[in-house]
């Protein structure tokens, strides 16, 4: 087994364990920490596939910005209140069965596709910042600029949604 394969299996097991931990954790804060593990494993996959730019962006945007945002929101929220709603075990079992069936269908359908044995070429240098930046600022300038408008509108929307209106009283439950 070559080093690439060993790294692939290590990162895959790390990602799947982290994903199960994120889904199964009681405390959302631990879920966020597990998800950071998953994001680092996925960034390792990107490096392994020679997509260095996306690996760096994944770490900066996901493991950095988005997860910090999640932690802030979790700190806003008092997690100690446990609402007294009985858990519906049938719904939970139905969800797990549905997800596993989806996985079986997708794996069996996709892995029997004609070219599923294509061997990936990792040594091509496509993921380097040099080539990706050239493509981004030559062919995709307009979407790049539009994404700044998207960010502005998302920011204004988040501020307007999260703003406490004057004279608003907190609803009593």
């Amino acid at each position: 087994m070559s080093t690439t394969q060993l790294l692939f299996w290590f990162l895959s097991i790390l990602a799947i364990v982290g994903a199960i931990g994120a889904v199964g954790s009681k405390n959302p804060l631990y879920g966020v920490l597990w998800l950071i593990v998953v994001f680092f494993a996925i960034s390792g996959h990107y490096v392994l596939m020679n997509a260095q730019f996306l690996a760096i962006v994944n770490i900066i945007v996901y493991a950095g910005a988005i997860m910090v945002l999640f932690t802030f929101v979790i700190m806003f929220i008092d997690l100690n209140e446990h609402p007294a709603i009985p858990k519906n075990m049938y719904l939970k079992a139905a969800g797990i069965i549905a997800g596993l069936s989806l996985m079986i269908v997708l794996v069996s359908a996709l892995s029997r596709a004609g070219n599923s044995h294509t061997i990936l070429r990792f040594d091509t240098g496509v993921g380097l910042i040099k080539y990706l930046g050239r493509t981004l600022f030559n062919d995709y300038v307009v979407p790049f600029e539009l994404s700044s408008v998207l960010f502005l509108s998302a920011m204004i929307g988040a501020v307007i949604i999260g703003k406490k209106e004057s004279g608003e009283t907190v609803a009593k439950i």
Binding site: T4, F8, V107, L110, S111, N115, T118, I119, L120, F122
Partner: peptide
């Protein structure tokens, strides 16, 4: 080297 199906899985 790795085949595409492992990434799919």
């Amino acid at each position: 080297m790795l085949e595409i199906k492992w990434y799919i899985v």
